[in-house]
Design a protein around this nucleic acid. Sequence first.
DNA 1: CGTTCCATGTCAGTAGTCTGACATACGCTG
DNA 2: CAGCGTATGTCAGACTACTGACATGGAACG
Lengths: 148, 148
Amino acid sequence: MERPGIELDTSLGYLLKEASSALRGSMEEVLRPLGMTITHYSCLELLAQRPGLSNSELARGTFVTRQSMNVLLQALERDGFVERASEPPTGRALPTRLTASGRRSLDQASAAVRSVELRMLAQLSDAEQADALRILRTMVRSLRGERD
Amino acid sequence: MERPGIELDTSLGYLLKEASSALRGSMEEVLRPLGMTITHYSCLELLAQRPGLSNSELARGTFVTRQSMNVLLQALERDGFVERASEPPTGRALPTRLTASGRRSLDQASAAVRSVELRMLAQLSDAEQADALRILRTMVRSLRGERD
DNA sequence: CGTTCCATGTCAGTAGTCTGACATACGCTG
DNA sequence: CAGCGTATGTCAGACTACTGACATGGAACG
């Protein structure tokens, strides 16, 4: 046949999607009992490490649109997990912070997610993990670089 | 602070999500002018390499549920890109095949997707690409292994 | 032979994310 | 200072994929 299709078995793109899908499935599995989605968790985790991020910054950090993050933030604020400034200190960006309740909720989720990540890395040496970090960063840079 | 959260900057899970998101964005960008989504394209590509796959097999190969794939297959059949057997040869599985129109549509999409994949790999040596394949396969196996 | 279990196809409802659109705030530049 | 471009927040609608549910066909087993 010799058609110029993409060989799935040796395609890094396909394998990347497969790995990402497997990770997503495992994370959803452990977060579901906590009543959390992945984006939900990602938002809280990002806020813990970088308090005061705005809606748009959180959206970029979790790889969703700012519209989607806006919907999520409204729910998180309504449920008391985060609080947003009522007035923008400058521009239009509203800084967001975790509440004590949000922090407790996040701590549970972090433990669950860390167990998944440890399982994913269990069969990899430190050198392989470092290689993977470097290679994935290179791939991201190449994909973004020529598109912007 | 020393809270036991996950360090995003050095987390392979986070980077995996970032890389997958960047790849998805680039693929959507080149497939959109062709009127195709990623799952749409993935289904056709899979059918080209393995003609006669059933709905459930296509779903597993593209990492969506069989319900989602069913909706997509109905649309693809309606638009004349694939054809399904009217009667199951055995069991309930209905084999699916590309039509000539579907093949033409796929060839355009394949070229576009291949250009994205080439760009993603441009800065990686052959050895690095092989390492990435091996490491990602190991991660997938670890994630699936303990869940089933 | 009948029961049990699993895989498949399909329908319906739900949830999460996206695109499109608009108003507002800041920075740059003529 | 007026105009332009960019970034942000937000609302509304559409779309995609998901979960839940049910029926059917085959295989394994007692």
